[in-house]
Amino acid sequence: MNEPTTIQDRINTSYAGLSDKLQIAAKFAAKNPVDIATRSLRSVAASTGVSPATFSRLARALGYADYEQMRQDGRETVERKMAPFSERAHALRLATSEQGSSTVLHRQATACISNIENLHNNIDPDRLNAAVQCLHDARTVLLIGAMGSAGIIDYFGYMAQWFKGNWKTVGRNGTELSPSLSRLGSDDVVFALAKAPYARRTIAALKTAREAGATTVVITDSRTSPALQFSNHSFVVSTESPQFFSSYAATLVLMETIISLLLARAGSEAEGAIRAAEVQINQLGENWIP
């Protein structure tokens, strides 16, 4: 079993079990990695209203030997994450040119496996079932994902539409999104995928959905994500990767799990819908036949 690899991963894994004071320190550490990496312990503590000893206890609660080890981890995380995509791509290209393809594959696979194990070990089944039930009961479900999340949301919607006719992907442009949001009510659900860098359109859509009384389900990558303040049901999923962009591997596992649970709830009616879709696809000649 792989251990969490960054401060953010460790906080995501341990947050619910921390005391109130440790949660205050953890929120600060997650939201201000540069401060953790560059400022003294006394200075960081003064900014939060909790004692330096609280941050030292947080470090040990997260599995570090002491605060200095957590701080060093923070420095490495900042160096890796704060750089623009272009700089990360440059570093990746140089590193990859010095490694064999098997090494590159191993590093990528190891990161993805760690993310998936974190998801598997820390997902709350009751929270997952509650979110799935909302999606099952909804009058309509709007799917929103922009920038790097757009294609992943398209795939999620494609799977659901085999047996859910009331799901619609709307986040790609404002022309389609605005009228869809204007029709939301308390029987509707907005499902959003929000990964850093966070798309302004996604956060604004979640805010509008909550104001309209709709239920919101969010998958994001950090407990400091701006999407969480507008979520009824939320899942923080690790995205660590040696790539220049975030990994969606664990997110896909969660989405495919949600589809499986929805299918089980829909029962034989879903099977009939899928069978009818298959017949229509054959009639249209969409599949290549050798």
Score class of each variant (00 low, 15 high):
residue 145 G to N: 04
residue 161 Q to E: 13
residue 198 Y to A: 09
residue 178 S to Y: 09
residue 165 G to L: 11
residue 141 V to Q: 00
residue 139 R to L: 01
residue 130 A to V: 07
residue 224 T to G: 12
residue 193 L to Y: 01
residue 131 A to T: 05
residue 212 A to Q: 14
residue 132 V to M: 02
residue 152 I to N: 02
residue 216 T to L: 10
residue 212 A to E: 09
residue 165 G to W: 10
residue 121 N to H: 11
residue 169 T to D: 02
residue 201 R to C: 08
residue 145 G to R: 03
residue 236 V to W: 07
residue 182 S to A: 15
residue 123 I to F: 11
residue 191 F to G: 00
residue 120 H to I: 11
residue 214 A to F: 05
residue 186 S to C: 08
residue 157 G to F: 10
residue 203 I to T: 12
residue 130 A to W: 06
residue 172 R to K: 13
residue 237 V to I: 13
residue 122 N to A: 02
residue 139 R to Q: 09
residue 227 A to I: 03
residue 239 T to A: 06
residue 136 H to M: 07
residue 173 N to K: 15
residue 134 C to W: 09
residue 232 N to E: 08
residue 183 R to T: 15
residue 202 T to R: 09
residue 171 G to D: 05
residue 197 P to K: 09
residue 148 G to K: 03
residue 238 S to I: 05
residue 166 N to W: 07
residue 198 Y to F: 15
residue 202 T to W: 07
residue 174 G to Q: 15
residue 140 T to S: 08
residue 146 A to L: 12
residue 123 I to G: 10
residue 236 V to N: 05
residue 127 R to N: 11
residue 215 T to N: 06
residue 232 N to K: 05
residue 137 D to W: 05
residue 176 E to Y: 10
residue 239 T to W: 01
residue 201 R to G: 08
residue 201 R to A: 15
residue 192 A to W: 02
residue 161 Q to Y: 06
residue 181 L to Y: 01
residue 140 T to Q: 14
residue 144 I to S: 07
